[in-house]
């Protein structure tokens, strides 16, 4: 585990999480959530959990983002908060 890399990725994860819940556009929020999932994937590769990392990259970031985009497409894109 490289702790400098760990610290930087942790910061990026927190920034992505704050941005995902503060953006008014729901499609942008969903895409930022996908970026958050990929940063989580990097974090787990850094900690030696490669199996968790590639499951997160394919299932969490890939399929999850696709499902979210499909749902936002069928509903409203704008949000008030």
């Amino acid at each position: 585990m490289i702790w400098q890399l760990d610290l930087i990725i942790c910061l990026f994860v927190i920034i992505c999480a704050i941005a995902a819940i503060n953006v008014k556009d729901l499609l942008a929020a969903v895409i930022i959530l996908g970026a958050y999932s990929f940063f989580m994937c990097l974090l787990w590769t850094n900690m030696g959990a490669v199996d968790v990392a590639f499951t997160e990259a394919s299932v969490g970031a890939g399929v999850g983002t696709v499902l979210f985009i499909a749902a936002v497409n069928r509903t409203k894109r704008r949000s008030k908060d």
Partner: peptide, 30 residues
């Protein structure tokens, strides 16, 4: 705190991966 239902769902996802981060951090070694 958020009123939009999609935002609530995004918050649920963030919380779930935070718990996963906690468990994987227990197994990691320096």
């Amino acid at each position: 705190g958020k009123k939009n239902l999609v935002k609530k769902l995004i918050g649920m996802n963030i919380m779930q991966s935070a718990v996963i981060l906690f468990y994987v951090s227990i197994g990691a070694k320096k």
